[in-house]
Computed example of a mutant assay.
Amino acid sequence: MDAPAPWERQPGEPARAYTNFCLYRDLLPAERSLRKVAERVAESSSKPRRVSAVVRQLQRWSSRWRWVERAAAWDAELDRRRREAMLKEARETQERHLRMARAMLTIVARRLQQIDPAELTPKDAARWVQVAAELERLALEQPTAVLEHRGTPAEQWINAILEVWRRRQAGGEGGSGADRSA
């Protein structure tokens, strides 16, 4: 049979000792002391008890049942549980953001196929894609910026689209500017 966790009742530990250990364990670490537990015990007792007498009893139990060590184990367990919950929440947030980014990219791609090119400027289309792609990169924990001044891939893509658009407006490759209404 496995031994109980340190913060649980130990084999042979009297119920009163364990009850008082729980009071000790559940205090904030910065406030944890036998005196504080003794004050609570004395206040809640049906018989008048001196705090000093309660402290002496608690000292015996604390020493015998390793309260300091067990409370430290409890603190470590709470910290582990908090970190685990934080990691789970971070993973769920990442997955949710990734789903949203992919949905946005799908919507933008569909919308771009339905739009009359005359209604949407290349700059607008590039901005839609840039925002969705950046959200996707954030969700995948990929870098969203480049330290060199060459620009991000999205910025380079926007500039390429703008260059093609400028050439078309100027009557260059892909048709003349006369083909488009202003």
Rank of each mutant, 00 (worst) to 15 (best):
W165N: 08
Q142W: 14
E163T: 13
P153N: 01
G151Y: 01
R166S: 07
V146L: 12
Q169D: 07
R150S: 11
V164G: 06
E163V: 08
G171W: 00
T144L: 06
Q169L: 05
I161E: 13
G171A: 02
T152V: 00
P143C: 13
V164I: 11
W157H: 09
P143H: 14
P143M: 14
H149A: 13
P153C: 00
W157V: 04
A170E: 09
A154P: 03
R167K: 11
W165I: 02
T144C: 11
Q142S: 14
I161V: 12
W165V: 05
R150A: 10
A160L: 07
E155V: 03
R168M: 05
N159C: 10
A145H: 14
I158T: 12
T152R: 02
Q156T: 02
L147C: 13
E148W: 10
W157Y: 09
I158N: 09
R168S: 04
P153T: 00
Q156P: 01
L162S: 07
R150L: 10
T152P: 01
Q156E: 06
T144I: 09
P153Y: 02
E163C: 13
L162Q: 09
Q142A: 14
V164S: 11
N159D: 15
A160M: 06
R166D: 12
P143R: 15
E155M: 08
A170K: 04
W165C: 07
W157E: 12
R167D: 05
T144H: 10
Q169F: 03
A170P: 03
Q169P: 04
T144R: 09
L162D: 08
G171L: 00
G171F: 00
L162H: 06
R166I: 03
E155H: 05
A145Y: 14
W157L: 09
N159M: 13
V164M: 12
N159A: 15
T144A: 07
R168E: 08
R167E: 06
P153H: 01
R167Q: 09
E155A: 07
I161K: 13
R166L: 08
N159E: 15
V146I: 11
Q156G: 03
L147W: 15
T144D: 08
R168I: 02
